[in-house]
């Protein structure tokens, strides 16, 4: 049985979770404004392909990430234009785009399959990386990972501490009331759909240029879009909790690899698939806070009650409902 080196394990979790964090935070921003961008899974693949292809062709990682971000923003723009300005169903448009973007990625990415392309180098931060345990886990990583860590704090601060964030929440809560107070709900929704798409695009590029370098079919990023969508709900539309969910998911995935080594007799697929039902189970657990009976039961147990309170999250009231001006 292989021994677990906790430092390596957690460093792997932080690195592996980086793109999931970006995608979940991007979607949190979009949903806070009241719009659901369901195209995440296809969007991530398309931007992973675009990022790899651009970086491979130009030899520049910067161009790679820019191309990925653009691809994510473009898919988001389609969702935005159809649902905000043309009043089409967000779910239908997003769903179809998921499938379309995925197939488009496989089709356009064919010439780039199984090529050896540029890869993001690791960039240890001097001094900080010497801190025992925390140093190797957080400060011996690459730029996208640092970005994902900073992004968590930034998103929280932006949403809950800035006037712009307040306007964003206002639009997601009650677009008509926001309009009455001089905010343009459509412009706000479009803005955060694009911003969210941009982050999803960066997540895709992070996959193909860092976490699972290269392009192929399958790429390895398949399915993460759906997980990111679930994490937004899991996080109760709160960026910090959504990120925490991303780390939990990455942890389960890494553990799967270890467990496979320990129990070779169990089919490998079990450990690959296990994180998904475990996430569903966690979601179920979180929803306990909304159950009246559980709340009554928790009244005499303060520790359980405070945990429930922390887990409880409410969707933006206008989420998924189109805004129609008078």
């Amino acid at each position: 049985m292989t021994e677990i080196d906790l430092t390596i394990l957690f460093a792997g979790v932080v690195a592996g979770a980086a793109p999931i964090v970006m995608a979940a935070l991007g979607e949190t921003l979009t949903e806070k404004a009241g719009l659901i961008n369901l195209s995440l899974d296809g969007s991530i693949l398309l931007s992973a392909m675009a990022g790899f292809a651009a970086a491979y062709t130009t030899g520049s990682l910067v161009f790679g990430f820019m191309a990925g971000a653009m691809a994510g923003a473009m898919v988001a723009a389609v969702v935005g234009i159809f649902s905000i300005h043309l009043n089409r169903s967000q779910v239908a448009v997003g769903f179809v785009l998921t499938l379309m973007a995925r197939d488009l990625a496989y089709f356009l990415g064919n010439p780039y399959a199984r090529l050896h392309g540029p890869q993001v180098p690791s960039l240890p931060i001097p001094l900080l990386k010497e801190i025992p345990f925390f140093g190797p886990v957080f400060f011996n990583q690459s730029l996208p990972v640092y970005f994902s860590l900073l992004l968590i704090g930034f998103c929280w601060w932006y949403i809950y501490r800035t006037p712009a964030g307040l306007r964003l929440r206002a639009v997601g809560e009650h677009p008509k009331a926001a309009y009455a107070r001089g905010i343009d709900p459509r412009r706000t929704q479009m803005l955060y759909t694009l911003a969210g798409g941009l982050l999803v695009g960066l997540a895709g590029a992070t996959f193909s240029l860092s976490v699972k370098p290269g392009w192929g079919r399958p790429q390895g990023a398949e399915g993460t879009g759906w997980i990111a969508l679930a994490l937004v709900i899991f996080g109760g539309w709160d960026p910090i909790r959504a990120a925490a969910g991303a780390y939990l998911f990455a942890f389960l995935q890494v553990m799967g690899i270890y467990l496979q080594g320990w129990f070779p007799s169990v089919p490998a697929q079990v450990f690959q698939v296990a994180p998904f039902p475990l996430m569903i189970f966690t979601l179920l657990f979180m929803n306990l806070a909304q159950k009246e009976r559980v709340v009554i039961w928790s009244e005499g147990r303060p520790w359980f009650r405070s945990m429930l309170k922390w887990l409880w999250g409410k969707a933006p009231t206008a989420l998924g409902k189109p805004y129609a001006p008078e």
């Binding site: 929440r169 809560e173 107070r181």
Partner: peptide, 17 residues
Amino acid sequence: DPLDFPLLSVLENFKLG
């Protein structure tokens, strides 16, 4: 039909706009 934001705080509602 009140045009305000139930999930935001009193102060945040006061501030918006």
